[in-house]
Design a binder for these strands. Structure first.
Lengths: 243, 243
DNA sequence: CGTGCCCTTGACCGAAATCAAGGTGGGTGG
DNA sequence: CCACCCACCTTGATTTCGGTCAAGGGCACG
């Protein structure tokens, strides 16, 4: 009985996509089985190592991708080397700038990342005769715009302490989206190094480190092995974030 | 002869829209004469005074608008009153957040503003059966996302001097889009007060003022009546912006 | 058992914020 | 028409937060 239902639901769906999150919450949700099949034919799943550059600045973009796992950071760099992370992408986000063949930023694997990627032309072809797909992309873009604007407030108006607290909350929400927002504790591995966090928050690594230490000494968080964070007092962390 | 051609081009186009910039560079460019007519029937042009709130935070959005003239600022405010401008919109930009009935920011007239506005439902109806319109909105949203990310770099990594220089260049480009980028001088009225500029750059008004004074004493710009700026040395201003 | 990377901690410094006075110009009411 | 007011801007003095410089710890790796 449950077999029958499962057969109906997955009928004609490419093996590649059956258990893929992007088919539900991501852009692929806009496609019917036939279109999925077309896309799957020219798509490939692969794993990239931490630090690998997915799309370089001013480089032609020939492939679009869905993030299946891990975290991708989008960075911009000034001519003298100052860097700023302008976006973080988690599963099942879509990586790639539609309708522009040249990227104005660098997309880099912040952790080990699993991607499902497709040639640019196939995606754009589908977009032309599939309004739903365009709509999904619009939704994703609007979501990124909202995030970008929240970060602008953080970058322009928050103190170092507030920035670090806000960052930890943002990661906690994205890594474990299922977490009960009222929960008084949560734990996760930071997907970013201190240097990346600094580039994200517009701070130096020293300042990030000091603020983390401060949160630790005040028993708001605990830190294990530098990367694993346990939020001990969710409420006080929220207050610290200062919205 | 030229009359005939003009008649052909404007045949069936609502009077309201004939000379409207949004019909060419804005979202209305996606509509055919018939659709323009439908939209024009329920649209209205009006002028709002400086300081007027177009869309309040957490307020229902019942109307979308095109900016016909003037500048609209989008701001976010923290609970203790700290403010950050997260977007500036010039003609023929589209104001309004599609597919979300509640705004998460405040849209306010930074100058006197001319708007052409339509009921939300009419626009969303058209969007459903007009992929071109959705495409235009996607383009506008992507443009805003690109700008937001550039500003994130500015907010996170630039010094006060660089921020003010970057701001002046951005205004110069948007107020006089026809200006030759290689020109060595340009002049315009600032659409923002010092307080707004500070909220845009993540600085205080005193710091903005000091940086303007510095640019003035170094003969990179001249200032008349506090609001009128003449760029005397475009190249040095670009260098100051520090990209 | 080094070696190097990442992180932390401390001392000091400097850019921008804060605090505090004025200046200026446009609008209003006498 | 003038005088006053008020909003907006500039300038100066001082403080402070975060950056810079410097040293050292911990852990993984060869």
């Amino acid at each position: 009985m449950s077999n029958v239902r499962k057969d109906v639901h997955t009928a004609g769906i490419p093996v590649l996509c059956v258990s893929c999150e992007a088919r539900h919450r991501g852009v692929c949700g806009a496609l019917n089985p036939e279109q999925l099949l077309t896309l799957a034919k020219s798509s490939s799943i692969h794993r990239t190592a931490e630090g690998e550059v997915l799309v370089g600045d001013a480089q032609d973009v020939e492939r679009y991708s869905n993030v299946l796992g891990g975290v991708v950071k989008l960075t911009k760099t000034l001519s003298d080397g100052r860097q700023q992370i302008v976006g973080l992408q988690f599963a099942p986000d879509f990586v790639g700038r539609p309708f522009k063949t040249e990227s104005v930023l660098t997309a880099e694997a912040a952790t080990e990342v699993d991607l499902c990627s497709f040639p640019r032309r196939v995606v754009e072809k589908m977009m032309a005769d599939q309004p739903d797909l365009q709509r999904r992309l619009l939704d994703q873009t609007l979501k990124e715009l909202d995030q970008a604007r929240d970060w602008m407030v953080m970058l322009g108006r928050k103190t170092a302490a507030e920035k670090v607290a806000s960052f930890l909350l943002m990661i906690a929400r994205n890594i474990r989206p299922s977490t009960d927002p009222d929960a008084h504790s949560a734990s996760f591995d930071l997907p970013l190094s201190r240097a990346d966090i600094a580039d994200f928050l517009g701070l130096t690594i020293e300042t990030v480190s000091r603020q983390m230490t401060r949160l630790r000494t005040e028993h708001i968080i605990r830190i294990e092995n530098n990367r694993h964070v346990i939020i001990e007092d969710f409420n006080r962390l929220v207050i610290r974030a200062g919205d």
